[in-house]
């Protein structure tokens, strides 16, 4: 019997490699335990993409070279992968849970008549079985899914849960035989990158929030400076929406935006329920308030009882670039 294989679908937009694909190569190598890690690479620019993928040390790269992969449809990609998977019969297959990955994978799954688990946060082997760990119903419940009898065992894996690490390996590069079948009745354009993702506080990774206790022009200006330095945005509680610079889109809370930043720093916010609802998903919450009994503190990881201005100045001076 041939050596067992983990295949990784490497997504490209023709010439650029999508980063999750590389993360999955690293992950596959980590759990391989003797299995070959093979990158399946549909590409319109073999030279450049092969060079990139090589740096992450898969045992083999199977190249599906065709200019039309610069703007291929989901169906065309699935069809190409299907032809290769049929040839090499991998034990399992990892696919980035990107939009393209999540669109291609089920079509491929239907062709292969096998199982597929979407949006995994982890995968590991239990013997020959790929255990696929995924959240269900938000992130409140996790489940482990297996595909006992059919092969390959397919999973899409969420971007950025694993780090891509460059690795040395004697990577074999093979141009595979396949036929590009152009799909009828559909015309797909090359993707257009979104230049500046129109800033939305609900997507911000750092939020500096101001409440009534921080309602003065100097503090607002400093908050904006701090937010700019941390690559974040300024949000406000309801009382500050009267200011011209803060509209409804800056308001945090039940009647405004729900936010989920990695870091939230609250200045002068007491913590009305309607505000607290909007910050439930923030990872780390720091709150500054003069009132030691302010409700906001019960929802905070770090509490500073004192003057907002002092704390802001201290933050600004220690984050100076």
């Amino acid at each position: 019997m041939a050596q067992s294989m983990i295949a990784v679908y490497v997504q490209t937009d023709g010439s650029m490699v999508e980063p999750t694909s590389l993360q999955l190569i690293t992950k596959a190598r980590a759990i391989a335990n003797g299995q070959r890690v093979v990158a399946l690479l549909p590409t319109s620019d073999a030279d450049q993409t092969v060079a990139t993928v090589k740096q992450y040390g898969p045992d083999e790269i199977l190249v599906l070279a065709d200019d039309r992969f610069a703007a291929a449809t989901d169906t065309e990609i699935a069809d190409g992968l299907y032809q290769v998977v049929e040839q090499v019969q991998p034990n399992s297959m990892l696919i980035p849970a990107t939009v393209v990955g999540r669109s291609v994978a089920p079509r491929l799954q239907a062709k292969l008549q096998t199982g597929l688990t979407a949006d995994c946060l982890d995968v590991y082997f239990d013997g020959d079985t790929l255990v696929q760990v995924k959240p269900t119903y938000g992130d409140d419940i996790m489940c482990e899914i297996i595909c006992a009898d059919r092969r390959p065992q397919m999973a899409t894996v969420r971007p950025n849960v694993f780090q891509a690490e460059p690795a040395q390996a004697a990577t074999q590069v093979t141009n595979v035989d396949f036929e590009f079948h152009p799909e009828a009745h559909i015309k797909m354009e090359k993707p257009t990158p979104i230049i500046s993702s129109s800033a939305n506080i609900s997507d911000a990774s750092v939020v500096i929030a101001l409440g009534r206790g921080a309602d003065n022009p100097q503090l607002i200006e400093k908050a904006q400076k701090l937010a700019a330095r941390l690559g974040g945005m300024v949000g406000v509680s309801r009382p500050l929406t009267d200011h011209a610079e803060f509209g409804h889109e800056s308001q945090i809370g039940q009647s405004g935006q729900s936010i989920a930043p990695d870091l939230l720093i609250n200045f002068g916010i007491s913590g009305a329920t309607q505000y607290l609802v909007g910050i439930e998903n923030a990872k780390t919450i720091v709150s500054v308030n003069t009132d030691p009994d302010a409700p906001i503190f019960t929802k905070s990881d770090y509490a500073y009882v004192g003057d907002a201005n002092d704390f802001m100045d201290a933050l600004l001076s220690s984050t100076r670039v």
Binding site: G271, T273, L276, D293, P295, T298, K299
Partner: peptide
């Protein structure tokens, strides 16, 4: 609702 929510989050 307002009284209940507040009494849950606020401590004396």
């Amino acid at each position: 609702q307002i009284a209940v929510d507040y009494s849950k989050q606020r401590k004396a």
